[in-house]
């Protein structure tokens, strides 16, 4: 009797489980059949009325039915959970091609970038980096650099004169004077910064631009050392082997003074419009530090000698990015600045 009852219940329940459509229905069946007060529990209550032999047989049947139902139930439960998860994930569909909210990456001014790059190169060769003021004394800007009053070289640099009797530095060279006094010999220094010339502004002329001054003072520093450093550094800056040449150039704070040309990087010296068909591009003035300048910097020219050079950072930036209007560098136009 009880066996029939059990097998009917098992079969009916299996059929019900197979027919459910929600996890809740499944749970209802589980409580109804397998719960503590469920139908299987009721069946087992009647077990006490059976003989021990029968009890053994029915017990086994009962367990088998329970195990089988639990398995089926669990399979369906898992299926519902998996479907529910899949449904939730599907709802979480996201379009990742939408632009991210919040600010994007800003950009550094191209002059900042090139300056940092060149500073790093010089630091790696043992040069320190110094800063100097934009407003300088006439003495530091001219006299201490062997440009006395009424020297025609003062005409070469149109100067902004100020109400306080000082001037806006026309070059970064005054930092040579500051550097010698601050560091003493031997020394290796560079000084990048903003300089000023009183000029009309157009696409290729600015009254405000950037230079990088360099100086090395030690025992027996020679022209051959200068050429070595310039070649090494310029090759690093341009990321290729560059050919340099020195030719005479006149700058009162160096003796001898040079214009350093590099072989044109566009045509490799065969001649093109960029180098005006000369094969060479004028890049930077340099020279051995004039003994008067060393002396005014508190260094004995009989004991020490040195070289100095001035690199035009603005010019370098314009060369690197092929910028054809110098005014853009200080125009504050984000359409331009965000390109770097």
């Amino acid at each position: 009797m009880i066996e029939t009852l059990l097998s009917d219940l098992a079969a009916a329940t299996q059929a019900r489980i197979a027919a459910v459509t929600t996890a809740d229905e499944l749970e209802t069946i589980r409580v109804e059949v397998l719960g503590r007060k469920g139908k299987l529990a009721e069946v087992s209550k009647d077990m006490g009325k059976l003989s021990p032999e029968q009890r053994g047989v029915v017990g086994k049947l009962l367990n088998a039915a329970k195990q089988s139902l639990e398995e089926t139930l669990s399979t369906r439960q898992n299926a519902f959970a998996a479907a529910a998860l899949a449904a939730r994930l599907e709802c979480e569909w996201l379009d990742l091609t939408v632009p991210a909210p919040g600010p994007g990456l800003g950009s550094l001014h191209p002059l900042t970038q090139i300056q940092a790059e060149i500073e790093d190169l010089f630091v790696s060769l043992g040069f320190t980096v110094l800063d100097g003021p934009e407003v300088e004394t006439e003495f530091n800007n001219f006299d201490a650099l062997n440009i006395p009053p009424d020297h025609p070289a003062r005409d070469m640099q149109d100067t902004f004169w100020l109400s306080n009797g000082h001037l806006l530095r026309t070059h970064t060279s005054p930092v040579q004077v500051r550097g010698m006094k601050k560091l003493g010999p031997p020394l290796r220094m560079i000084a990048p910064g903003r300089v000023f010339r009183n000029e009309e502004v157009d696409a290729s002329h600015e009254h405000t631009f950037y230079q990088l001054e360099g100086m090395m003072v030690d025992k027996d520093v020679s022209v051959a050392h200068l050429i070595y450093f310039m070649k090494t550094l310029l090759s690093a800056i341009f990321k290729r082997d560059v050919t340099v040449r020195l030719r005479p150039g006149y700058f009162p704070f160096v003796e001898p003074g040079f214009e350093l040309d590099i072989q044109c990087l566009i045509c490799n010296g065969t001649g093109c419009p960029v180098c005006k068909h000369s094969g060479w591009v004028e890049l930077l003035p340099c020279g051995l530090v004039h003994p008067n300048v060393l002396r005014l910097g508190g260094i004995d020219p009989e004991e020490y000698s040195g070289f100095a050079f001035g690199l035009g950072l603005t010019r370098l930036v314009m060369m690197r990015y092929a910028i054809d209007d110098i005014r853009q560098l200080q125009g504050g136009d984000l359409r331009f600045l965000t390109q770097f």
Partner: peptide, 22 residues
């Protein structure tokens, strides 16, 4: 000047005293 051979200087290798502001 093209007839001068570029010459590395013989100087002590030192860590430059870098200003913290930079």
């Amino acid at each position: 000047y093209g007839n001068l051979t570029p010459l590395p200087p013989l100087v002590p290798n030192t860590v430059p005293p870098l200003p913290p502001e930079r």
